[in-house]
């Protein structure tokens, strides 16, 4: 029961990743691509992390998965911000 639920969550997360990748490949400019990637991958990552936490079994492992989710989420948000910022202002841009 729990395994099946976790697998369904991971599959749903994978669907969102595929959608984000299609957006990355199909959208015309860097801001549209970032838009597709950040939205879809953020949700996909959350779903996959939830599914893995369900499959993990022990509470400690679930906690570690939650930590990984948190830091990957803020790291990818920061990276997207940096890419968008560079595209908008260049390297020495307006602070």
């Amino acid at each position: 029961m729990l395994e099946g639920f976790g697998a369904i969550l991971i599959a749903m997360g994978a669907v969102f990743f595929v959608a984000g990748t299609v957006g990355l490949l199909r959208f015309p400019d860097i801001f549209c691509r970032l838009h597709a990637l950040t939205k879809a991958d953020g949700l996909g990552l959350a779903l996959i992390a939830l599914g893995v936490a369900l499959l993990a079994g022990t509470a400690g492992a679930a906690f570690r998965v939650a930590l990984v989710w948190f830091f990957v989420a803020i790291a990818s948000a920061t990276c997207s911000h940096l890419i968008a910022r560079y595209a908008r202002h260049g390297a020495g841009g307006v602070p």
Binding site: T78, H81, A91
Partner: peptide, 20 residues
């Protein structure tokens, strides 16, 4: 080399991430 200006979001992230 002049450091690239990376903005407040990056600084906050670095402050959070470094100890971790």
């Amino acid at each position: 080399a002049p450091a690239p200006v990376m903005g407040v979001v990056w600084q906050g992230f670095a402050r959070l991430a470094l100890p971790v």
